[in-house]
Computed example of a mutant assay.
Amino acid sequence: MEWTDIRVTVAQKDAELAEAAATMIAEGGIYIEDYGDIEEQVAEIAHVDLIEPELLEKPRDVVIIHIYLEPGAQPAETLAAIEARMEAAGIAYTVETEGVEQEDWQNGWRKYYHPLEIGRRLAVVPSWQEYDTDRVKLLLDPGLAFGTGGHETTGLCMEALDELVQGGERMLDIGTGSGILAIAALKLGAASAEGVDIDPVAVRTAVENAALNGVESQFRGLVGDLSDQASGTYQIVAANIVANAIISLSPAVPGLLADGGHFIASGIIDTRADEVEAALKAAGLAVKERKEKRGWVCFICTAA
């Protein structure tokens, strides 16, 4: 089957707004090409020879957003929606379209995904690659779900989990995506984890990744609106989402935390960090640590 690949190119400074707009438009899938920090990523990867040389030649000042339309869809409607949203946001962009086979776009991203070592204990490894390490190995096949460990927001969350998980915890992952955070917590020794996401495709992917890592009996994937599927209290609650969602979610978090529990909030661009921190404090949470990496912020909180 031939799908339509709509490629929207924007400047790095507009990437967050453009990605958010594209996510609202996309129906058949979305894929982001962002090489702005490729040198830093190379430095963080143990086997540098795994990096494709062509990646180092990619442009650093732009982001390319691929929106995929299934066979029979009308590209004109999506192009009109892109134009409306980009103009409303004041984002300069260019757009191209191309027909691609389903296999091409579903698997083409794999050549850019390589093992990552995160924190003191974790290594995130693509399910189709061999990787010898003494670290706790988390096998991952993200499919169409968000969360490979390579993005700063996910990496910051995993570093926090590496520090917080001591063994035996009950964990809640809000906006679970690929399930990477819940599975990481389980592999580090948590007793159980629940992953909640509004996207049923993401939840299915998370369940599959839990099975891939041998923790399916400890993981429960739930389709729902952020925390509405939560039950009881948790020693660790993580939300790697966006600033607005964290602000909206904050008032419910203290009721989800067990005594001495921690809330990990990430997905926050640095320009909105103060606003999110104020919302967390207003909700009755104490910010114990602020982690930052290349323009992204993660807060580790406890009940005040």
Rank of each mutant, 00 (worst) to 15 (best):
G232W: 15
L212M: 09
Q229D: 01
A210I: 07
E216F: 00
G214W: 04
R220P: 03
S227R: 06
T205V: 07
N213A: 13
R204Y: 00
G214S: 10
V207E: 14
V223W: 03
V223K: 06
G232E: 11
N213C: 08
V207H: 02
N213S: 08
N213V: 11
V207A: 14
G224W: 04
S227Y: 08
N209P: 04
V215W: 01
R204C: 03
G232Q: 13
Q229T: 08
N209K: 14
E208T: 14
G214T: 09
V223Y: 11
N209H: 08
R204H: 07
F219T: 06
D225T: 15
N209C: 15
E208C: 07
G221A: 01
E216N: 04
V207W: 03
V207F: 00
F219E: 09
R220Y: 03
A230H: 07
N209Q: 11
Q229Y: 03
A210H: 10
A230D: 01
A211M: 05
L226F: 12
L222E: 07
G214C: 01
N209V: 15
G214I: 04
G224A: 09
A230K: 01
Q218Y: 03
A210Y: 15
L226D: 02
L212A: 12
A230T: 00
Q218W: 02
R204D: 06
G214E: 02
